[in-house]
Simulated assay, not measured.
Amino acid sequence: MSLRTRLEADETLISAWSGVPDALTVEIVARQGFDCVTLDMQHGGHNEDSVLRSIAPVLAADKPAIVRIPVGRFDMASRALDFGAEAVIAPMINSVADAKAFAESMKYPPLGGRSWGPTYAFPRHGKGDHAEWLATSNQRTLAFAMIETRAALDALDGILATPGIDGIFLGPSDFSIAWTKGAKVDSTLEDMMETVGAVATRARAAGKHCAIYIIDPKMAGRAVKMGYRLLAGCSEHALIALGAKTLIGNIREAIGK
């Protein structure tokens, strides 16, 4: 079942967040209980080559692959789709012009200007023929515009109304920096939570999907109540640290030390 289908069914999905540019590591993460895996090129270590190679084990685990591109790298959005990604997250979409440029790279004509060339995506998904692939791609792929600045908040209605934008992805850390005018970074900042909820309300009213990065797992329930349905987080660093802490703690408890 596609990412879009599950989100349209109002399921709540949890995405792992990969920043280690190694396909073997991604393979291990993809085999865990996550609904999908996001490869991060903005702040993570992923690059074009690692994205190309890492999407394969995600698809082999029968899960959707998502790619967060670097700021302004809309050419990489098209490449991520050509590699087999089902969704792309674009950071710092701060205006309608940004949203239009992003959507242009994500959708085939007449909706956008994406160039044809699913050299890896088509055989990796192994479905239908080229005609069917072309006919269904615009609907199947998801373009998530990141909302993380005051400029983006001011332009939100226009971003949501941009053809080809399928959803928003709220980055709470950057949003907190913008909210406090650079005074602090706090993804759980209570003062901004009403607005974080309002972003989801406005997006869902516009028929768009809502995603958010979760740093503190305790915030997940609150985010879902706000309307967010794709919860991303769980980086390899966090998974290893938590797994090691739990395992070492269990061993020490067992041996009495």
Score class of each variant (00 low, 15 high):
68 R>W: 00
66 I>R: 02
26 V>G: 02
154 D>S: 13
66 I>M: 13
9 A>L: 04
196 V>N: 01
22 D>G: 00
22 D>T: 04
31 R>V: 00
139 Q>M: 01
90 A>P: 03
134 L>W: 07
150 R>G: 13
51 V>F: 02
126 G>V: 08
29 V>T: 15
215 I>W: 11
222 R>S: 10
238 A>Q: 14
123 P>T: 10
221 G>F: 02
15 S>T: 08
177 I>D: 12
175 F>G: 06
254 A>D: 12
235 S>P: 12
113 G>E: 12
165 I>C: 08
151 A>D: 15
238 A>L: 12
237 H>C: 09
210 C>E: 03
207 G>Q: 08
65 A>N: 04
83 F>K: 02
31 R>K: 14
42 Q>W: 00
204 R>W: 03
79 R>Y: 01
237 H>L: 15
108 Y>G: 10
25 T>D: 08
143 A>P: 01
239 L>V: 14
140 R>T: 10
182 G>C: 05
71 V>I: 15
5 T>L: 11
117 G>L: 08
60 A>I: 00
129 D>Q: 08
11 E>M: 02
191 D>F: 00
100 K>C: 00
98 D>Y: 01
71 V>D: 12
37 V>H: 04
124 R>W: 02
75 D>I: 01
72 G>Q: 03
70 P>Q: 11
211 A>P: 05
8 E>M: 06
249 G>Y: 07
145 A>C: 14
209 H>C: 04
113 G>V: 02
94 N>G: 10
142 L>Q: 10
112 G>P: 04
223 A>V: 02
70 P>W: 01
173 S>T: 13
99 A>G: 09
216 D>N: 15
190 E>C: 00
207 G>H: 08
135 A>P: 00
197 G>W: 02
131 A>S: 14
178 A>V: 04
145 A>H: 05
98 D>H: 14
226 M>C: 10
168 I>S: 09
45 G>L: 02
85 A>K: 02
25 T>N: 13
167 G>I: 00
189 L>P: 03
151 A>Q: 15
128 G>L: 03
137 S>A: 15
144 F>D: 02
221 G>I: 01
166 D>L: 03
201 T>S: 14
133 W>H: 14
51 V>Y: 01
4 R>E: 09
257 K>W: 01
144 F>S: 07
78 S>I: 00
181 K>C: 09
47 N>S: 07
239 L>T: 11
247 L>T: 15
187 S>E: 12
234 C>H: 14
250 N>T: 11
197 G>D: 08
111 L>F: 00
171 G>T: 03
248 I>H: 13
12 T>S: 12
69 I>H: 01
48 E>D: 13
75 D>S: 08
178 A>C: 07
34 F>E: 08
6 R>G: 06
139 Q>N: 12
241 A>I: 04
189 L>C: 05
14 I>C: 10
53 R>H: 14
233 G>R: 04
154 D>I: 08
137 S>M: 11
246 T>E: 13
208 K>D: 06
177 I>E: 10
17 W>K: 05
202 R>N: 07
76 M>A: 13
81 L>S: 05
23 A>W: 05
131 A>M: 11
41 M>G: 11
157 D>G: 06
133 W>L: 08
32 Q>Y: 09
36 C>K: 03
88 V>I: 13
162 T>A: 11
158 G>A: 10
83 F>G: 01
43 H>E: 12
188 T>S: 15
53 R>T: 12
190 E>M: 09
213 Y>E: 07
77 A>I: 07
156 L>G: 06
